[in-house]
Design a protein around this nucleic acid. Structure first.
Lengths: 206, 206
DNA sequence: GTCTATACTTGGATAGAC
DNA sequence: GTCTATCCAAGTATAGAC
Protein backbone atom coordinates (compact mmCIF):
# COMPACT_ATOMS: atom_id res chain seq x y z
CA UNK A 1 0.00 0.00 0.00
CA UNK A 2 2.44 2.62 1.17
CA UNK A 3 4.98 2.87 -1.57
CA UNK A 4 7.88 5.10 -2.45
CA UNK A 5 7.71 7.04 -5.65
CA UNK A 6 9.63 5.02 -8.17
CA UNK A 7 8.88 6.79 -11.39
CA UNK A 8 8.11 5.36 -14.79
CA UNK A 9 11.64 6.12 -15.93
CA UNK A 10 12.89 3.00 -14.17
CA UNK A 11 15.96 4.73 -12.77
CA UNK A 12 16.80 3.90 -9.16
CA UNK A 13 15.85 6.90 -7.09
CA UNK A 14 17.27 7.49 -3.63
CA UNK A 15 14.12 5.98 -2.22
CA UNK A 16 14.71 2.76 -4.06
CA UNK A 17 18.22 2.49 -2.66
CA UNK A 18 16.89 3.05 0.83
CA UNK A 19 14.42 0.27 0.28
CA UNK A 20 17.32 -2.02 -0.55
CA UNK A 21 19.21 -0.99 2.56
CA UNK A 22 16.18 -1.70 4.67
CA UNK A 23 15.66 -5.10 3.08
CA UNK A 24 19.32 -5.99 3.64
CA UNK A 25 19.13 -4.94 7.27
CA UNK A 26 15.96 -6.98 7.67
CA UNK A 27 17.65 -10.08 6.28
CA UNK A 28 20.65 -9.60 8.53
CA UNK A 29 18.51 -9.07 11.61
CA UNK A 30 16.33 -12.05 10.82
CA UNK A 31 19.44 -14.21 10.54
CA UNK A 32 21.13 -13.08 13.71
CA UNK A 33 18.21 -12.23 15.98
CA UNK A 34 15.44 -14.44 14.65
CA UNK A 35 11.86 -13.45 14.03
CA UNK A 36 11.05 -12.43 17.59
CA UNK A 37 14.13 -10.19 17.54
CA UNK A 38 13.43 -8.64 14.17
CA UNK A 39 11.47 -5.60 15.28
CA UNK A 40 11.37 -2.41 13.26
CA UNK A 41 13.64 -0.85 15.87
CA UNK A 42 16.17 -3.68 15.80
CA UNK A 43 16.26 -3.68 12.00
CA UNK A 44 16.75 0.08 11.95
CA UNK A 45 19.60 -0.28 14.44
CA UNK A 46 21.24 -2.92 12.26
CA UNK A 47 21.02 -0.80 9.14
CA UNK A 48 21.69 2.54 10.76
CA UNK A 49 18.53 4.25 9.59
CA UNK A 50 15.35 5.51 11.12
CA UNK A 51 12.71 3.17 12.46
CA UNK A 52 9.88 5.11 10.82
CA UNK A 53 11.28 4.33 7.37
CA UNK A 54 10.19 0.74 7.72
CA UNK A 55 6.56 1.82 7.88
CA UNK A 56 6.90 4.46 5.21
CA UNK A 57 8.39 2.04 2.69
CA UNK A 58 6.74 -1.23 3.63
CA UNK A 59 3.68 -0.40 5.66
CA UNK A 60 4.40 -2.95 8.40
CA UNK A 61 7.23 -5.04 9.76
CA UNK A 62 5.77 -8.28 8.45
CA UNK A 63 5.49 -6.89 4.96
CA UNK A 64 9.13 -5.91 5.15
CA UNK A 65 10.07 -9.39 6.28
CA UNK A 66 8.24 -10.87 3.31
CA UNK A 67 10.15 -8.52 1.04
CA UNK A 68 13.32 -9.76 2.74
CA UNK A 69 12.31 -13.35 2.01
CA UNK A 70 11.69 -12.41 -1.61
CA UNK A 71 15.13 -10.90 -1.89
CA UNK A 72 17.04 -13.88 -0.44
CA UNK A 73 14.90 -16.35 -2.35
CA UNK A 74 15.64 -14.60 -5.62
CA UNK A 75 19.41 -14.43 -5.22
CA UNK A 76 19.56 -17.96 -3.87
CA UNK A 77 17.38 -19.30 -6.66
CA UNK A 78 19.67 -17.67 -9.20
CA UNK A 79 22.66 -19.28 -7.53
CA UNK A 80 21.06 -22.70 -7.49
CA UNK A 81 19.87 -22.45 -11.08
CA UNK A 82 23.31 -21.47 -12.21
CA UNK A 83 25.01 -24.27 -10.32
CA UNK A 84 22.58 -26.96 -11.41
CA UNK A 85 22.88 -25.88 -15.01
CA UNK A 86 26.13 -27.68 -15.71
CA UNK A 87 25.09 -30.88 -14.01
CA UNK A 88 25.12 -34.04 -16.10
CA UNK A 89 24.10 -36.83 -13.77
CA UNK A 90 22.70 -37.63 -10.35
CA UNK A 91 26.14 -37.81 -8.75
CA UNK A 92 27.00 -34.34 -9.99
CA UNK A 93 23.67 -33.10 -8.73
CA UNK A 94 24.52 -34.31 -5.27
CA UNK A 95 27.97 -32.80 -5.29
CA UNK A 96 26.63 -29.44 -6.40
CA UNK A 97 23.79 -29.52 -3.88
CA UNK A 98 26.30 -30.30 -1.13
CA UNK A 99 28.47 -27.32 -1.98
CA UNK A 100 25.72 -24.76 -2.24
CA UNK A 101 24.03 -26.04 0.83
CA UNK A 102 27.25 -25.45 2.75
CA UNK A 103 27.04 -21.84 1.56
CA UNK A 104 23.45 -21.63 2.70
CA UNK A 105 24.28 -22.95 6.10
CA UNK A 106 27.27 -20.69 6.63
CA UNK A 107 25.49 -17.60 5.40
CA UNK A 108 22.18 -18.47 7.01
CA UNK A 109 20.12 -18.08 3.86
CA UNK A 110 17.60 -20.74 4.77
CA UNK A 111 17.23 -19.33 8.23
CA UNK A 112 15.23 -16.42 6.88
CA UNK A 113 12.71 -18.86 5.48
CA UNK A 114 12.66 -21.09 8.54
CA UNK A 115 12.08 -18.19 10.91
CA UNK A 116 9.21 -16.86 8.86
CA UNK A 117 7.64 -20.28 8.51
CA UNK A 118 7.61 -20.66 12.28
CA UNK A 119 6.23 -17.15 12.67
CA UNK A 120 3.40 -17.83 10.25
CA UNK A 121 1.68 -19.77 13.03
CA UNK A 122 1.34 -16.53 14.95
CA UNK A 123 0.56 -14.33 11.95
CA UNK A 124 -1.78 -16.22 9.63
CA UNK A 125 -1.54 -13.47 7.01
CA UNK A 126 2.03 -14.59 6.44
CA UNK A 127 1.04 -18.14 5.62
CA UNK A 128 -0.36 -17.71 2.14
CA UNK A 129 2.54 -15.48 1.23
CA UNK A 130 5.11 -17.96 2.43
CA UNK A 131 3.42 -20.89 0.73
CA UNK A 132 3.76 -19.00 -2.52
CA UNK A 133 7.46 -18.49 -1.85
CA UNK A 134 8.20 -22.10 -0.93
CA UNK A 135 6.43 -23.60 -3.89
CA UNK A 136 9.05 -22.47 -6.45
CA UNK A 137 11.72 -24.32 -4.48
CA UNK A 138 9.80 -27.56 -4.51
CA UNK A 139 9.17 -27.14 -8.22
CA UNK A 140 12.79 -26.29 -8.93
CA UNK A 141 13.95 -29.37 -7.04
CA UNK A 142 11.37 -31.51 -8.77
CA UNK A 143 12.50 -30.35 -12.19
CA UNK A 144 16.17 -30.92 -11.45
CA UNK A 145 15.37 -34.41 -10.18
CA UNK A 146 13.15 -35.24 -13.13
CA UNK A 147 15.87 -34.30 -15.57
CA UNK A 148 18.43 -36.56 -13.93
CA UNK A 149 16.26 -39.43 -12.84
CA UNK A 150 14.87 -40.18 -16.27
CA UNK A 151 15.94 -43.57 -17.41
CA UNK A 152 16.99 -44.56 -13.91
CA UNK A 153 15.51 -47.83 -12.68
CA UNK A 154 14.37 -45.91 -9.61
CA UNK A 155 12.16 -43.59 -11.58
CA UNK A 156 9.19 -45.90 -11.15
CA UNK A 157 9.79 -46.25 -7.44
CA UNK A 158 10.26 -42.58 -6.66
CA UNK A 159 7.89 -39.84 -7.73
CA UNK A 160 10.03 -36.74 -8.28
CA UNK A 161 7.37 -34.60 -6.64
CA UNK A 162 7.56 -36.57 -3.42
CA UNK A 163 11.32 -36.71 -3.40
CA UNK A 164 11.49 -32.98 -4.05
CA UNK A 165 9.17 -32.31 -1.16
CA UNK A 166 11.28 -34.54 1.09
CA UNK A 167 14.47 -32.78 0.05
CA UNK A 168 13.06 -29.35 0.80
CA UNK A 169 11.87 -30.64 4.17
CA UNK A 170 15.30 -32.12 4.83
CA UNK A 171 16.99 -28.82 3.99
CA UNK A 172 14.76 -26.98 6.39
CA UNK A 173 15.24 -29.50 9.14
CA UNK A 174 19.02 -29.61 8.73
CA UNK A 175 19.16 -25.85 8.86
CA UNK A 176 17.29 -25.85 12.13
CA UNK A 177 19.39 -28.58 13.67
CA UNK A 178 22.69 -27.16 12.44
CA UNK A 179 21.89 -23.74 13.83
CA UNK A 180 20.95 -25.29 17.10
CA UNK A 181 24.26 -26.90 17.92
CA UNK A 182 26.41 -24.81 15.60
CA UNK A 183 27.60 -27.99 14.01
CA UNK A 184 27.84 -28.34 10.26
CA UNK A 185 29.57 -31.71 10.40
CA UNK A 186 26.43 -33.75 10.64
CA UNK A 187 24.80 -32.01 7.73
CA UNK A 188 27.97 -32.73 5.76
CA UNK A 189 27.79 -36.36 6.78
CA UNK A 190 24.23 -36.58 5.50
CA UNK A 191 25.24 -35.21 2.14
CA UNK A 192 28.15 -37.65 2.00
CA UNK A 193 25.72 -40.48 2.70
CA UNK A 194 23.44 -39.20 -0.02
CA UNK A 195 26.33 -39.04 -2.43
CA UNK A 196 27.25 -42.67 -1.74
CA UNK A 197 23.66 -43.57 -2.39
CA UNK A 198 23.58 -41.64 -5.63
CA UNK A 199 26.69 -43.49 -6.74
CA UNK A 200 25.00 -46.77 -5.94
CA UNK A 201 21.94 -45.77 -7.93
CA UNK A 202 23.98 -44.91 -10.93
CA UNK A 203 25.89 -48.19 -10.81
CA UNK A 204 22.53 -49.91 -11.06
CA UNK A 205 21.33 -47.67 -13.82
CA UNK A 206 24.39 -48.12 -16.04
CA UNK B 1 14.42 -20.96 40.86
CA UNK B 2 10.92 -19.93 41.89
CA UNK B 3 9.26 -23.19 42.77
CA UNK B 4 6.05 -24.31 44.32
CA UNK B 5 6.22 -26.24 47.53
CA UNK B 6 6.01 -29.87 46.55
CA UNK B 7 6.73 -31.68 49.78
CA UNK B 8 8.84 -34.77 50.34
CA UNK B 9 5.69 -36.86 50.68
CA UNK B 10 5.39 -37.04 46.92
CA UNK B 11 1.66 -36.45 46.95
CA UNK B 12 0.39 -33.99 44.34
CA UNK B 13 -0.45 -30.79 46.14
CA UNK B 14 -2.80 -28.26 44.63
CA UNK B 15 0.24 -26.32 43.47
CA UNK B 16 1.51 -29.29 41.50
CA UNK B 17 -1.82 -29.66 39.74
CA UNK B 18 -1.79 -26.00 38.86
CA UNK B 19 1.67 -26.43 37.40
CA UNK B 20 0.28 -29.14 35.17
CA UNK B 21 -2.60 -26.97 34.05
CA UNK B 22 -0.19 -24.19 33.18
CA UNK B 23 2.06 -26.53 31.23
CA UNK B 24 -0.91 -27.90 29.29
CA UNK B 25 -2.11 -24.41 28.46
CA UNK B 26 1.42 -23.50 27.35
CA UNK B 27 1.56 -26.48 25.00
CA UNK B 28 -1.84 -25.67 23.57
CA UNK B 29 -0.98 -22.02 23.05
CA UNK B 30 2.36 -22.84 21.47
CA UNK B 31 0.63 -25.14 19.02
CA UNK B 32 -2.15 -22.80 18.00
CA UNK B 33 -0.52 -19.39 18.36
CA UNK B 34 3.15 -20.12 17.84
CA UNK B 35 6.03 -18.80 19.89
CA UNK B 36 5.40 -15.14 19.21
CA UNK B 37 1.82 -15.64 20.32
CA UNK B 38 2.64 -17.62 23.44
CA UNK B 39 2.78 -14.78 25.93
CA UNK B 40 2.09 -15.29 29.61
CA UNK B 41 -1.19 -13.48 29.14
CA UNK B 42 -2.22 -15.59 26.13
CA UNK B 43 -1.33 -18.81 27.93
CA UNK B 44 -3.30 -17.73 30.99
CA UNK B 45 -6.28 -16.95 28.78
CA UNK B 46 -6.06 -20.40 27.20
CA UNK B 47 -5.92 -22.16 30.55
CA UNK B 48 -8.33 -19.90 32.38
CA UNK B 49 -5.96 -18.94 35.18
CA UNK B 50 -4.10 -15.88 36.28
CA UNK B 51 -1.16 -14.52 34.34
CA UNK B 52 0.93 -14.00 37.47
CA UNK B 53 0.93 -17.73 38.15
CA UNK B 54 3.28 -18.29 35.25
CA UNK B 55 5.94 -16.25 36.98
CA UNK B 56 5.26 -17.66 40.40
CA UNK B 57 5.60 -21.25 39.23
CA UNK B 58 8.14 -20.97 36.44
CA UNK B 59 9.97 -17.70 36.93
CA UNK B 60 9.65 -16.64 33.29
CA UNK B 61 7.69 -17.42 30.17
CA UNK B 62 10.64 -19.08 28.47
CA UNK B 63 11.22 -21.39 31.40
CA UNK B 64 7.57 -22.39 31.19
CA UNK B 65 7.90 -23.08 27.50
CA UNK B 66 10.86 -25.34 28.16
CA UNK B 67 8.82 -27.20 30.75
CA UNK B 68 6.12 -27.54 28.10
CA UNK B 69 8.67 -29.01 25.70
CA UNK B 70 9.75 -31.45 28.41
CA UNK B 71 6.19 -32.56 28.93
CA UNK B 72 5.39 -33.20 25.26
CA UNK B 73 8.76 -34.82 24.67
CA UNK B 74 8.23 -37.24 27.51
CA UNK B 75 4.76 -38.38 26.53
CA UNK B 76 5.75 -38.60 22.89
CA UNK B 77 8.91 -40.52 23.66
CA UNK B 78 6.89 -43.00 25.69
CA UNK B 79 4.51 -43.42 22.77
CA UNK B 80 7.33 -43.95 20.28
CA UNK B 81 9.18 -46.37 22.55
CA UNK B 82 6.05 -48.38 23.06
CA UNK B 83 5.24 -48.51 19.36
CA UNK B 84 8.75 -49.40 18.25
CA UNK B 85 8.97 -52.15 20.84
CA UNK B 86 7.03 -54.71 18.86
CA UNK B 87 8.84 -54.02 15.61
CA UNK B 88 10.64 -56.91 13.96
CA UNK B 89 12.10 -55.56 10.76
CA UNK B 90 12.79 -52.42 8.79
CA UNK B 91 9.46 -52.57 6.99
CA UNK B 92 7.57 -52.69 10.25
CA UNK B 93 9.65 -49.83 11.54
CA UNK B 94 8.54 -47.73 8.62
CA UNK B 95 4.90 -48.64 9.03
CA UNK B 96 4.96 -47.78 12.70
CA UNK B 97 6.85 -44.54 12.14
CA UNK B 98 4.28 -43.55 9.52
CA UNK B 99 1.37 -44.08 11.86
CA UNK B 100 2.78 -42.24 14.84
CA UNK B 101 4.00 -39.43 12.70
CA UNK B 102 0.45 -38.95 11.46
CA UNK B 103 -0.56 -38.56 15.08
CA UNK B 104 2.21 -36.04 15.64
CA UNK B 105 1.16 -34.02 12.67
CA UNK B 106 -2.51 -34.01 13.54
CA UNK B 107 -1.95 -33.17 17.18
CA UNK B 108 0.91 -30.75 16.51
CA UNK B 109 3.34 -32.40 18.89
CA UNK B 110 6.41 -31.55 16.86
CA UNK B 111 5.27 -27.99 16.45
CA UNK B 112 6.13 -27.24 20.04
CA UNK B 113 9.71 -28.25 19.32
CA UNK B 114 9.90 -26.47 15.97
CA UNK B 115 8.59 -23.22 17.40
CA UNK B 116 11.08 -23.26 20.24
CA UNK B 117 13.96 -24.13 17.92
CA UNK B 118 13.19 -21.11 15.79
CA UNK B 119 12.84 -18.94 18.89
CA UNK B 120 16.21 -20.03 20.20
CA UNK B 121 17.81 -17.70 17.68
CA UNK B 122 16.26 -14.80 19.52
CA UNK B 123 16.82 -16.19 23.03
CA UNK B 124 20.23 -17.86 23.16
CA UNK B 125 19.56 -19.15 26.69
CA UNK B 126 17.03 -21.49 25.11
CA UNK B 127 19.56 -23.05 22.80
CA UNK B 128 21.51 -25.24 25.20
CA UNK B 129 18.29 -26.40 26.79
CA UNK B 130 16.77 -27.34 23.47
CA UNK B 131 19.88 -29.13 22.28
CA UNK B 132 19.64 -31.31 25.37
CA UNK B 133 16.02 -32.10 24.54
CA UNK B 134 16.63 -32.92 20.88
CA UNK B 135 19.54 -35.22 21.51
CA UNK B 136 17.45 -38.04 23.04
CA UNK B 137 15.38 -38.15 19.86
CA UNK B 138 18.42 -38.56 17.65
CA UNK B 139 19.74 -41.24 19.97
CA UNK B 140 16.39 -43.03 20.10
CA UNK B 141 16.16 -43.04 16.31
CA UNK B 142 19.75 -44.19 16.02
CA UNK B 143 19.17 -47.11 18.37
CA UNK B 144 16.01 -48.20 16.59
CA UNK B 145 17.82 -48.06 13.26
CA UNK B 146 20.86 -49.91 14.55
CA UNK B 147 18.71 -52.74 15.84
CA UNK B 148 16.99 -53.26 12.52
CA UNK B 149 19.80 -52.48 10.12
CA UNK B 150 22.20 -55.05 11.52
CA UNK B 151 22.95 -57.66 8.94
CA UNK B 152 21.55 -55.53 6.18
CA UNK B 153 23.86 -55.07 3.19
CA UNK B 154 23.32 -51.34 3.59
CA UNK B 155 24.77 -51.24 7.06
CA UNK B 156 28.22 -50.47 5.68
CA UNK B 157 26.90 -47.74 3.45
CA UNK B 158 24.79 -45.95 6.02
CA UNK B 159 25.99 -44.90 9.43
CA UNK B 160 22.95 -45.11 11.74
CA UNK B 161 23.98 -41.87 13.42
CA UNK B 162 23.82 -39.96 10.15
CA UNK B 163 20.58 -41.56 9.06
CA UNK B 164 19.06 -40.83 12.46
CA UNK B 165 20.08 -37.19 12.20
CA UNK B 166 18.58 -37.00 8.72
CA UNK B 167 15.32 -38.56 9.86
CA UNK B 168 14.95 -36.10 12.73
CA UNK B 169 15.67 -33.27 10.31
CA UNK B 170 13.11 -34.67 7.89
CA UNK B 171 10.47 -34.89 10.62
CA UNK B 172 11.06 -31.29 11.57
CA UNK B 173 10.98 -30.09 7.99
CA UNK B 174 7.84 -32.03 7.13
CA UNK B 175 6.11 -30.64 10.18
CA UNK B 176 6.92 -27.12 9.07
CA UNK B 177 5.82 -27.70 5.50
CA UNK B 178 2.67 -29.57 6.46
CA UNK B 179 1.59 -26.85 8.84
CA UNK B 180 2.22 -24.29 6.18
CA UNK B 181 -0.20 -25.58 3.61
CA UNK B 182 -2.36 -27.64 5.94
CA UNK B 183 -1.69 -30.60 3.75
CA UNK B 184 -0.81 -33.96 5.24
CA UNK B 185 -0.96 -35.77 1.92
CA UNK B 186 2.56 -35.01 0.88
CA UNK B 187 4.03 -36.15 4.17
CA UNK B 188 2.06 -39.37 3.72
CA UNK B 189 3.46 -39.75 0.23
CA UNK B 190 6.98 -39.42 1.58
CA UNK B 191 6.38 -42.15 4.10
CA UNK B 192 4.90 -44.33 1.40
CA UNK B 193 7.99 -43.78 -0.71
CA UNK B 194 10.16 -44.65 2.26
CA UNK B 195 8.18 -47.81 2.84
CA UNK B 196 8.70 -48.92 -0.76
CA UNK B 197 12.37 -48.30 -0.29
CA UNK B 198 12.48 -50.27 2.92
CA UNK B 199 10.81 -53.15 1.14
CA UNK B 200 13.45 -52.96 -1.59
CA UNK B 201 16.20 -53.00 1.01
CA UNK B 202 14.82 -56.05 2.65
CA UNK B 203 14.47 -57.92 -0.60
CA UNK B 204 18.20 -57.37 -1.08
CA UNK B 205 19.00 -58.38 2.46
CA UNK B 206 17.06 -61.61 2.42
C1' DG C 1 12.02 11.03 1.38
C1' DT C 2 13.82 11.22 6.06
C1' DC C 3 13.84 12.51 10.92
C1' DT C 4 11.80 13.71 15.64
C1' DA C 5 8.30 13.23 18.70
C1' DT C 6 4.70 10.97 20.40
C1' DA C 7 0.26 8.23 21.02
C1' DC C 8 -1.10 3.75 21.88
C1' DT C 9 -0.71 -1.26 22.89
C1' DT C 10 1.08 -5.40 24.65
C1' DG C 11 3.82 -7.95 27.39
C1' DG C 12 7.22 -9.25 31.32
C1' DA C 13 7.56 -9.02 35.85
C1' DT C 14 6.77 -7.70 40.81
C1' DA C 15 4.25 -6.06 45.23
C1' DG C 16 0.93 -6.79 48.18
C1' DA C 17 -3.83 -8.10 49.44
C1' DC C 18 -6.33 -12.18 50.31
C1' DG D 1 -0.85 -20.55 46.47
C1' DT D 2 -3.74 -17.34 43.91
C1' DC D 3 -5.56 -12.85 42.52
C1' DT D 4 -5.55 -7.61 41.79
C1' DA D 5 -3.10 -3.79 40.72
C1' DT D 6 0.60 -1.72 38.87
C1' DC D 7 5.28 -0.47 36.99
C1' DC D 8 8.20 -0.48 33.24
C1' DA D 9 10.19 -1.72 28.82
C1' DA D 10 9.65 -2.45 24.06
C1' DG D 11 7.21 -2.37 20.06
C1' DT D 12 3.85 -0.70 16.20
C1' DA D 13 2.36 2.95 13.97
C1' DT D 14 1.29 7.85 12.85
C1' DA D 15 1.69 13.14 12.67
C1' DG D 16 4.20 16.65 11.51
C1' DA D 17 8.61 19.22 11.05
C1' DC D 18 12.34 19.51 7.92
Amino acid sequence: MTKSGVGARGGSTTGARTRERIVEAAIETLKTEGFAGASARAIARTGGFNQALVFYHFGSVNELLLAALDATSQTRMARYRDAVDGVENLGDLFRVATEIYAEDLDAGHIKVLAELMAASTTFPQLRTEIVARVEPWVRFTEEALTRHMEGSPFAQLLAPKDVAYAIVALYLGMEMLANLDDNRDRADAIFATGARFAALFESFGA
